[in-house]
């Protein structure tokens, strides 16, 4: 499972960063990006889902390793 941040949609709310700082970082302007390749270890799956479910811009998604959208 990977977390993906759509930088076109991100407006810098920083909800994901506060909920899942292990998975998402923000730049000096507050815009988010996935850390590394976005890999979500099983123990962080719940946090990843919170990051998805609290983004007002729908900028964050979880995808399977083959790139297909993950069921939430």
């Amino acid at each position: 499972m990977r977390i993906v941040v759509d930088s076109e949609k991100c407006e810098g709310h920083n909800r994901c960063y506060s909920l899942a700082p292990e998975l998402v970082d923000v730049d000096d302007y507050g815009y988010a990006s996935a850390i590394g390749d976005g890999n979500v270890p099983p123990e962080l799956l719940e946090k990843a889902q919170l990051a998805v479910d609290n983004c007002p811009e729908y900028a964050i998604t979880l995808v399977n390793d083959d790139g297909t959208p993950a069921e939430s």
Partner: peptide, 23 residues
């Protein structure tokens, strides 16, 4: 509340620039 895509700070390009400070 687990799912909370609230727009108290607005949404889109005018998202409140000071939202982190307010929070």
């Amino acid at each position: 509340r687990q799912q909370n895509r609230h727009v108290a700070f607005g949404v889109g390009i005018h998202r409140c620039a000071g939202s982190n400070l307010a929070r």
